[in-house]
Amino acid sequence: MIKVRFFGMLRLALKVSSVEVEAESIKKLLEELQKMYNIDSELLKGTVIFVNDKNMNELQGYKTRLTAGDTVMFLSPVSGG
C-alpha cells in the first residue's frame, strides 16, 4: 500500500488528511484518487508531488514507480510567509 498525505488547498477541498492506496506509479495513483474522490485530474496535477521526500519531477515525473511503503505527499503549488 502507498501512504498518501494531503496538504494545502487539496486537503481542504477533499477534507481528508491521509489515505492508503494501491498503485504502481504516480500516474496510476492519480487515476485511483480521481475515482475515489470524484475530482478533476487537473486539481491533482496542480499540486507539487513528493515521493519519499523527493519532488517527482526530480524522479520520473508521472511515470515514477511506487512500491509498497512509499509515502506520497500532495502539497500546495505555491506558498510563502
Binding site: 496538504f7 494545502g8 488547498m9 481542504l12 507539487v48 513528493f50 521526500d53 505527499m73 502539497l75 500546495s76 503549488p77 505555491v78 506558498s79 510563502g80 510567509g81
Partner: peptide, 21 residues
C-alpha cells in the same frame, strides 16, 4: 493562487508542510 487562495485560506502557516517536505 497564492494571494487569492492560499493566503486567505491557510495564511502563511500553510507554508510549513512544504518547508518540511
Amino acid at each position: 493562487p497564492f494571494t487569492g487562495v492560499q493566503l486567505p485560506k491557510l495564511g502563511t502557516a500553510g507554508l510549513l508542510s512544504s518547508m518540511h517536505a
